[in-house]
Design a protein around this nucleic acid. Sequence first.
DNA 1: GTATGTGAATGGGTTCACAGCC
DNA 2: GGCTGTGAACCCATTCACATAC
Lengths: 268, 268
Amino acid sequence: MPAVSDAEDTAVRAKQIPEAAVARLAVYLRILSGLAEQGTTAVSSEELSAAAGVNSAKLRKDLSYLGSYGTRGVGYEVQVLVSQIERILGLTRQHRVAVVGIGNLGHALANYGGFPGRGFPVEALFDLDADLIGVPVGGLPVSHMDDIPRVCSEREISVGIIATPPTAAQSVCDRLVAGGVQCILNFAPVVLQVPAHVEVRKVDLAVELQILSFHVARRADSAASAGSAGENQGNTGLPGTGGSADNGSTGGGRNGAGTDGGLGMVVR
Amino acid sequence: MPAVSDAEDTAVRAKQIPEAAVARLAVYLRILSGLAEQGTTAVSSEELSAAAGVNSAKLRKDLSYLGSYGTRGVGYEVQVLVSQIERILGLTRQHRVAVVGIGNLGHALANYGGFPGRGFPVEALFDLDADLIGVPVGGLPVSHMDDIPRVCSEREISVGIIATPPTAAQSVCDRLVAGGVQCILNFAPVVLQVPAHVEVRKVDLAVELQILSFHVARRADSAASAGSAGENQGNTGLPGTGGSADNGSTGGGRNGAGTDGGLGMVVR
DNA sequence: GTATGTGAATGGGTTCACAGCC
DNA sequence: GGCTGTGAACCCATTCACATAC
């Protein structure tokens, strides 16, 4: 194999890793961190996969995207995998976070006080509510939404978390983008429009609940119609892909009235 | 087509709907609800798909799993689709919800005060912290975790939301199952072990952030190594499958010290 | 003419099973 | 002997393109 620079190597590999595998690598990373903390220095694919709730073949394939860091007949060194996954996931650099919408959810996120460990420190909070501006939440004073572009660019925020009602989400998003934010985690039930260089992920509680509802209904229905019906075998461990979705909820928060975090739900 | 009972029909169709489509149906439902609210009575696949951020072929295929409820040359009736999606997702019955772990996140969920609209009323709250027991949060008094099985079965809870630190999650899960809960939404970064008849979905903030980090890193790397490099085109609208994952975080909440909702994060 | 519904083709991801290496 | 790494087979999901119905 020809020599390649570290950056090139990372780039080439990273481009080929399937989306689904990336999500799982993050899972493995957490388990590995736990193992490292309790002094374990080596694992087999069997052990790791069991802890992650996937089968061992999938785990090995996932790890192979990083390169060949295992030892055949032996297993993997925990520390090596941790480093390699961190490298691929881009966790070697800091990602400063801003939370917008200091309502129910936003408050929880802000209070969490900068995500523990190295990685994603919360460095800015925003809301519309005049009563909240300047008030420290989780040790950080809340700024006004109008200042999003300036503050984000000043503090070099790269990640924005949107926890506003759906109606405000797009405008907040635009301001985050104007402030130079590169990725957005969106809790509002809206499909955001962003330029190509910005990455968005959506988390939607309502959809999660509705998916659960579907599975229960499916079971109930098949039991009802078939009389006995075949039981589907135990869950695969990994609930797998979390859905993503959309709503059109009423705001009606309580905690931080003004720009409360949606957690949007609506049925009907 | 031969006549089939409604229950049978729902069961048969439901069994064949791909997992990915279910998640999107929930998205469509929210958009349709919004349209209905503002008085729109009809939509085309083109319009709906645009709003949902998917292409129209996919939308039509998704809707076809429900049956044929559109009119060729015309489009769909909003109200019809709403009813059909609600039927398939099992939203015609109530799903009473319990929230366990009244910390940062749990507080937010509880305070949300029963998810608005028909569907998922929050009917029970649990925590370990003696200072919280009996205290009303979002209008509902907090019960002790030891009472989970009794209270859940008394109140006919069918959905449990776990917002505890990772260490407590499995034991909470076991108690929810003992209380007859059928589905669990898990915010703790742990892979839960459950019997075959219980459905679990996981939401993991840490993993979401790490996936975002990966995409940014990938872009930065390819730009660095290639000099120019090809830009990947604009996001597809739907961020798609939310990942799910795992960590090994420290508890260290602040709000409801005892059994705070993890929002687990750990890097190293 | 227009927009739905759907078989057929394509592509991505998972599983299998075994070759390769300790 | 044991465990990793990976091509090949398989399966699910998306996309295409057109027949079908209004």
